[in-house]
Design a protein around this nucleic acid. Structure first.
Lengths: 207, 207
DNA sequence: GACGATACCAAGCAAGCGCTTGGTTTGTAA
DNA sequence: TTACAAACCAAGCGCTTGCTTGGTATCGTC
């Protein structure tokens, strides 16, 4: 199942908005603006201009500006959870599963959904506490996937550190790539970067 | 040389402000507020109230609000560069030097200067491009320390991945601890966390 | 004990903010 | 063609923002 198939399935279930529709386009532009300028520095007038409507018309689609931020985050998590799940299911050994997870998360962070992923990390504090709780609940499924794989590797002796610590370190390390990794400028490919991450964890790249 | 001795030396050289003075107290409160609420959500009225003056009086000490943010970052980098330098100098083997660096950075992020370190990571985009360039120049000395130690370990065969990739991964991983590591709630000590990081990199804790 | 510099206050300005309002256009289906 | 809802516009309200202004304490120094 390809990533675009996963996206289509989620759109059909109404779990994420079609990027071709009005709502989906707005969320995409919002993610880009929020990443580039930050949530606070992005005005509703900026958002409206990005999709070619008046600022007041935004509030026909979303109740508040914060609702837009929350929607960006929720839909991003839904999409990525499905992508990660597929990546794990398709891989064989635990080490291959870990590699698939790392590779998929790097792809999410640095690929098409990169803007939204960066927003998820860097604009977290701009969400109200209530919204934070809602979004956190969604993230748990996602995190369980990782802990499961890391736990198996630890039991096998392939991992020295604690799974929950490793996962948190990886969250930071992989998210941070968005600030320095620019494949279009040449250098490391996505697979090469994945190899480096695995090597850092002590797994040799010959797999 | 203890951390407080380093601080005193820097104050004497006028490279960082005395936390007991007016300017130093303001910077400390600013770091706390910027971390807790974010730079944009923190108003000059908040800052003034935190040190017990009127909002207009702030502009006697700093030309703009952004100058306050920049000062927080600059002084934090100066202090931490000195601390890291001392940590490296005191350690013996390259592996011990790496451990000392990890431990020192974790201490910076989660200890007294934690507020300012978090600001450095999460409020980066709120700096104007010119200020970003100034601050980046300061960071280079700091980064060179890490790359030197990691390069030696790589040459020794103790490290599989590329030093510059490892450093960037560690930057993300260690910074991210600020979002989840709370030693006061029990659990992992700082030394325990350092051990976990080293174990993740494939170094056994018996050192 | 007069003087200048430093630190502060009280008041408020101009601009920009999120969001509301009342009304018009557009799409859809009978 | 009519009816109705969804999508949008034009205008602006009430409030907050960073910062300025003109004036007043407080201080060390000669």
């Amino acid at each position: 199942m390809s990533q675009s198939d996963i996206l289509k399935a989620l759109i059909a279930e109404n779990l994420v908005s079609d990027p071709k529709g009005a709502r989906g386009r707005l969320l995409q532009e919002a993610a880009r603006l929020f990443r580039d300028k930050g949530y606070e520095r992005t005005t509703v007038r900026d958002l409206a201009a990005a999709v070619g409507i008046q600022s007041g018309s935004l509030f026909h689609h979303f109740r508040t500006k914060e609702d837009i931020l929350k929607a960006v985050m929720v839909e991003t998590i839904r999409l990525n959870t499905a992508i990660m799940q597929a990546a794990v299911d398709e891989a064989g050994t635990p080490e291959q599963k870990l590699r698939a997870l790392v590779r998929a998360e790097l792809e999410s962070i640095n690929g098409q959904t990169g803007e939204a992923m960066a927003v998820l990390v860097f604009e977290w504090r701009s969400l109200s506490e209530d919204s934070q709780a809602d979004v956190l609940a969604l993230r748990e499924i996602y995190e369980a996937l990782w802990l499961d794989v890391l736990g198996t590797l630890k039991a096998e002796g392939a991992l020295l550190a604690e799974p929950f610590v490793v996962r948190r370190m990886l969250t930071g390390a992989l998210s941070w790539t968005v600030t320095w990794y620019h494949p279009e400028r040449g250098g490391l490919t996505l697979d090469g970067l994945t190899d480096q991450v695995m090597a850092m964890l002590g797994f040799s790249p010959a797999n």
